[in-house]
Design a binder for these strands. Structure first.
Length: 258
DNA sequence: ATGGCGACCGCAGGTCGA
């Protein structure tokens, strides 16, 4: 089972690229973030014509997440992260697929830090850690996929000294990610590529793509029973070089059949 | 250190992302 995650930065303006990527990369499951579209503007007909069933949680202007499944309809198990009934931002959706739980998440950016946006990021992170603990405790295969807005270590960014005060790299952010991992999750890309320079995001500015001035912020975290099935993982970097690209590239993993 | 680009809404330019 090939599972992908892709922050598309606007499904309306990215639809041609999304459809081309689905056709070329052919993931069985695709987690999308930053739809930037209200619920009723999701292009379901085009997604279905491409052979995918979908669930999604839209929001006007910002955020928005979706889970696509090739030749199947994802069974939605959640469309919000528990723990704050006042939180109306569409940043989480979860589905059951072929015996596994797939969570598609878009963790808040948190800049500028410190400030209320950074506080929201850390609070959201705590809710994720609490829910992830419950998911992991079930023992079933679980995949946490998405844009975590976390640079986990110094080798995950082109120039770490420039990012030390940024919400994606601050000590509090890295510590929260470490606490999440310490529940027993496996960082899939790092497990298979421990020493490689891997980036999933390149700024639109300053010729970041041409200079390979990127960062690794889109992640797959696997529960123990899912990690045991991990056979491949990579970044579809070629998508970042297309016309009208997202600033993120798709990331994917392959899990062996049970 | 700043501003750069791209997308949003909606019709100008403010806001957001990372």
């Amino acid at each position: 089972m090939k599972i992908a995650t892709f922050n598309i930065n606007g499904i309306a303006s990215r639809l041609p690229n999304l459809l081309r990527w689905l056709d070329e990369s052919r993931p069985d499951v695709a987690c999308l973030q930053e739809l930037k579209a209200p619920q009723e503007k999701f292009p379901l007909a085009a997604i279905e014509a491409a052979g995918y069933g979908a669930i999604w949680h839209g929001q006007k202007s910002w955020n928005g997440v979706a889970i696509l499944a090739r030749g199947a309809q994802p069974l939605e198990t959640r469309r919000d992260l528990p723990g704050d009934a006042q939180d109306i931002q569409s940043r989480y959706i979860e589905a059951a697929l072929e015996g596994a739980t797939v969570a598609c998440l878009y963790l808040p950016n948190g800049n500028p830090a410190p400030g209320p946006k950074f506080a929201y990021k850390l609070a959201w992170f705590e809710r994720l850690i609490a829910h992830a603990s419950a998911l992991h405790a079930s023992g079933a295969p679980v995949v946490l996929a998405g844009d975590f807005n976390v640079i986990p270590t110094e080798r995950d960014v082109y120039k770490p000294e420039r990012w030390v005060d940024d919400a994606l790299f601050r000590p509090e952010t890295r510590a929260a990610f470490r606490r999440l991992l310490d529940q027993g999750w496996t960082d899939a890309l790092r497990r298979l590529h421990p020493d490689e320079r891997i980036y999933t995001y390149w700024d639109y500015f300053r010729n970041a793509w041409q200079r390979n001035a990127g960062m690794r912020i889109d992640h797959f975290l696997l529960s123990a029973s899912a990690a045991g099935r991990l056979v491949a993982a990579d970044v579809d970097r070629y998508v970042r070089a297309w016309q009208k690209p997202s600033d993120h590239a798709p990331v994917w993993i392959e899990l062996s059949e049970r």
